[in-house]
Design a protein around this nucleic acid. Structure first.
Lengths: 217, 217
DNA sequence: GCAGGTTTGTGACAAATGTTACACAGCGGG
DNA sequence: CCCGCTGTGTAACATTTGTCACAAACCTGC
């Protein structure tokens, strides 16, 4: 954990995952931003927190949750290298807060871009401007898919949707997940998830093991 | 229905509902955009449609729905004068499509801003750039509230939330709604809505009449 | 290999929501 | 005034999801 200043490292990481950025922009970012390391399971953001900077993920993975007053959480989407948290941009630019939380699912490096820089970047660097718009667009689309899944789908379809998503993110048909984790992410209960997964296994859609779910479809 | 060209009218409407725009921007928009009229209940957007322009609402009201493959629809939020459809901006700028539909709830006038103009507006007019970002931000927040309501809340709480929203939008405690309309918007069934509204009436939260629900809380 | 924790399986039941079926009330047009 | 339409009320039942209780399977450290 902690903040590390290492300009050359920043430059390399940016070139690797944000290749679309113009060279000037990369230098600019390398000059003014810092990398912050997070351990697995560490929170990057807490509900109600104000932002002093927006975050670009350069390594690892981050899960974004919506939280309600009682502390229930609902998994929305996941970010990887090359992604940015739209919320941190939005809130950062307006100095507002939001009821979301972000958790590293593995050791993660994020680039902290100070809010103060945002206006200059938006107006001065076309690739940054496109990046921000594209970030908004894709997060918005993801959020719409989330709405779909809870508004129209039943629990078993939602589990299927969830598993497919996890497979896409991990590039692996074998997922290291407990039923409890899934239930928590979907704001349901472990028993329900177990029951439905068992039915999916009987239908030949998955194979279940301790801590692993293998997708067969 | 139909497209009306009336530069002076456009200018006036813009000044009225988009007072924050700089004068240059208003002239620019008045010069290059057209007003389009929609009747009550007319669709402004169909699922899967491509956008050639983004829309600013200058008069009336528009409900935004998410649709699934089977044609079920789920009400997300509502736009009034001074609002813009974030989706039409996002999709417009990227020439992508989306499974949403928009319906006028009353006679509505919208300003059509051609996509071709977007880049020029974003880079050339600061008030436009802020407007777009603010539009994204507030739609995103609204969408998060929608997620809340279906992820965490039970049906009766959702109805309460829905009624409160309608009151805010209509500035009126007496809502002209049928139970069927509410049920459709929430992707539920009329009987369920009737049942729960009746309970709310017994608890003194609302008064029910034919085609009207009076909010008492 | 055994103790103790974690993960999964499962039955019984509760609660919420969806479905079916039907009665009736209000309202407008002829 | 009566017919027919739309909207509402409600009972009975099905289905889905959540909760409780408990057992078994599995894993790890000793």
């Amino acid at each position: 954990m902690g903040i590390t200043i290492q300009h050359s490292g920043v430059q390399q990481l940016l070139e690797l995952h944000f290749g679309q950025f113009e060279p000037d922009l990369i230098s600019k970012l390398a000059e003014h931003c810092v990398i912050r390391d997070f351990e697995a399971n560490q929170q990057l953001m807490r509900p109600g927190q104000y932002f002093k900077s927006t975050m670009l993920i350069v390594e690892g993975g981050v899960k974004i949750y919506r939280e309600d007053q009682e502390g229930n959480e609902f998994f929305m989407y996941q970010l990887g290298p090359g992604d940015a948290c739209a919320l941190s941009m939005i809130c950062a630019t307006r100095k507002e807060q939001s009821q979301i939380s972000a958790k590293a699912i593995e050791p993660t490096k994020a680039l902290l871009v100070p809010i103060a820089l945002m206006d200059e970047l938006m107006t001065g660097y076309k690739t940054w401007y496109y990046f921000v718009l594209e970030t908004y667009r894709s997060r918005f689309e993801e959020l719409l898919e989330v709405v779909d899944s809870i508004a129209f789908k039943s629990m078993d379809e939602r589990i299927e949707f969830y598993l497919k998503n996890q497979r896409k993110l991990s590039h692996n048909d074998e997922l290291a997940l407990t039923h409890q984790q899934i239930a928590t992410d979907m704001n349901s209960s472990r028993e329900v998830v177990s029951r439905l997964l068992k039915k999916m296994e009987q239908r030949g859609m998955v194979r279940l093991g301790r801590n692993t779910i293998t997708i067969l479809f």
